[in-house]
Amino acid sequence: MTLSRASSRPLPPYRAILAVDAKDFTKLPGSVHEETSAAIKSVVGNAMRDAGLDDDWSDPSFFGDTGDGFAVGLPPRILPFLIDPFPMLLQNRLAQRRAERPGEVPLRLRVSVHVGPLPVDPAAPSSTGNGAARNDTHRLLDADVIKEALRDVSPEIALIALIISDRVYEDVVRGRYAALHPDNFVSVTARVMGKGFDQPAWLHLPAQPGRPFQSGSPGTDDPANPTEATPSSPFLGSNYGQAAQINHGGMHQSGGATR
Rank of each mutant, 00 (worst) to 15 (best):
D144M: 10
D144E: 11
I146E: 01
K147W: 13
K147S: 03
K147F: 12
E148S: 13
E148R: 15
E148I: 03
R151N: 12
D152I: 10
V153A: 04
A158H: 11
A158C: 14
A158R: 04
L159H: 14
L159R: 05
A161H: 05
L162I: 07
I163A: 02
I164Q: 00
S165C: 12
R167L: 00
E170P: 02
E170Y: 03
D171S: 09
V172R: 03
V173R: 00
V173I: 05
V173P: 02
R174V: 05
R174E: 05
R176N: 06
Y177K: 11
Y177V: 00
Y177S: 01
A178P: 00
A179H: 07
A179G: 06
A179V: 10
A179Y: 04
P182E: 07
D183R: 07
F185M: 02
V186K: 00
S187N: 10
S187T: 14
S187E: 14
V188F: 01
T189M: 05
A190D: 01
R191V: 09
M193S: 11
M193G: 13
G194C: 08
K195A: 07
K195G: 04
K195Y: 10
K195T: 05
G196L: 09
D198Y: 12
Q199P: 00
Q199N: 06
Q199K: 10
P200C: 08
W202F: 06
L203K: 02
H204P: 01
L205W: 15
P206K: 03
Q208K: 07
P209D: 06
R211T: 08
R211M: 08
P212G: 08
S215T: 15
D221Y: 11
D221I: 08
P223W: 15
P223R: 12
A224V: 06
A224Y: 13
N225E: 09
P226S: 06
E228P: 00
A229D: 04
T230A: 10
T230L: 09
T230S: 12
T230H: 10
P231W: 05
S232F: 13
P234T: 11
F235L: 06
L236D: 02
L236C: 02
L236V: 13
G237H: 13
S238I: 11
N239F: 09
N239W: 12
N239P: 03
G241D: 14
Q242R: 13
Q242V: 12
Q242W: 09
Q242H: 12
A243W: 09
A244K: 12
A244Y: 14
N247H: 07
H248R: 14
G250P: 04
M251E: 13
H252C: 05
Q253P: 07
Q253I: 11
S254I: 10
